[in-house]
């Protein structure tokens, strides 16, 4: 296959690059697509000019939205493809070697200076690769031995319940000796019950539910991670569910695991994920009338006025003047 053919095919498959379709698509194709995209449009990142602040690693909120909207979104695909074709002639042949991970959805350059900001750091053209396994595809087998066994047990249990891996899981991630099943959200309650009741699995205890917010993952910004523990077989497993910010609903597992009650309330409190079927989904840490969900990435650290007997607390950076 010539380079040109490869590139065309990659551009086609790039439509699905953000979809994370798990086992159905070969991960190499995704990588190839993203790599082609990133290399052909080097530095025209539409970051806001003169963006203040923002550390080298976690960009400020504005950067996330501007960069995130233009770079990984589906709308940007057509533009990129057009650019690909225009610049294809001038590109050097692709270097040989293993496929690189896709470009990071919200980061480019270093030190937060890029775009039209007059970047003199010399790092503005740096392409940051996204090696986050949470955004990648399924981990191909073979896994470590005990996780292989766990994977087989899960498949068998699902089969017994009249289902299959691909029916209920988006993907399965094995990373650093821990296995995380990305469960399709409408299947979570069903899967949790199978994980608890199947004699080969017997995850008797739910150790907790926790949210993570990835604002740059359009359409799957909010993640909820459930940690399960099997005392019978002495092993652990994580279930991860995603939902978009615009429709933050996840089925509750309280009816299977009563211990998830407070953990789901906490996750609702901090992330605004609505656990459907929870008996009393109210705030647990923050006051009942608190506006917003503090652990989201777009929620500021400090500066929230606090009412206490008529007093108002100024944001931290406005309390004192040191000059």
């Amino acid at each position: 296959m010539s380079d040109d053919e490869k590139r065309t095919e990659a551009a086609d498959s790039a439509e699905n690059a953000q979809g994370m379709t798990g086992g159905t698509q070969h991960p190499d194709d995704v990588d190839e697509a993203a790599r082609t995209r990133s290399e052909s449009s080097p530095v025209d990142q539409p970051g806001k000019a003169g963006e203040p602040g923002g550390g080298p690693d976690q960009p400020s909120k504005e950067e996330v939205t501007t960069g995130g909207d233009a770079r990984p979104g589906e709308q940007a695909q057509t533009e990129d493809e057009a650019k690909d074709e225009a610049e294809e002639e001038s590109l050097p042949a692709e270097p040989e070697g293993p496929a690189l991970p896709p470009e990071h959805p919200s980061r480019r350059g270093m030190f937060g200076a890029y775009g039209g900001s007059g970047d003199t750091s010399g790092y503005g053209r740096l392409v940051v690769r996204d090696a986050n396994p949470v955004r990648g595809g399924s981990t191909p087998r073979p896994w470590p031995e005990e996780l292989e066994k766990l994977g087989d047990d899960v498949s068998a249990a699902l089969q017994e319940a009249g289902s299959t891996d691909t029916d209920v899981f988006e993907k399965v991630l094995v990373d650093r000796g821990q296995v995380t099943f990305f469960v399709k959200r409408e299947k979570l309650a069903e899967v949790a019950r199978i994980f608890r009741d199947d004699p080969q699995l017997r995850f008797e205890m739910c150790m907790g539910v926790n949210g993570v917010h990835y604002p740059e993952e359009i359409g799957r910004e909010l993640h909820a991670v459930v940690q399960l523990l099997s005392i019978t077989h002495n092993r652990r497993v994580n279930l991860e569910v995603t939902c978009p910010e615009t429709d933050p609903h996840i089925p509750s597992i309280v009816h299977t695991y009563p211990s998830a009650n407070w953990h789901e309330r906490e996750t609702y409190d901090f992330f605004g994920i609505l656990f459907d079927g929870h008996p009393a989904l109210t705030r647990i840490q923050m006051p009942d009338d608190w506006p917003g969900h503090p652990q989201r990435k777009d929620y500021p650290l400090g500066g929230i006025p606090v009412e206490y007997k008529g007093a108002t607390i100024a944001p931290p950076d406005e309390r004192r003047a040191y000059n």
């Binding site: 976690q58 907790g208 993570v212 917010h213 940690q227 009650n261 953990h263």
Partner: peptide, 24 residues
């Protein structure tokens, strides 16, 4: 539960504290 995004700061750190759970 420690989550990194590849940066110099944690993306998210959550503690499953036994006091929190056991008070249920």
């Amino acid at each position: 539960h420690v989550v990194s995004d590849g940066g110099t700061r944690p993306w998210r750190v959550h503690f499953r504290d036994p006091s929190f759970n056991n008070l249920q």
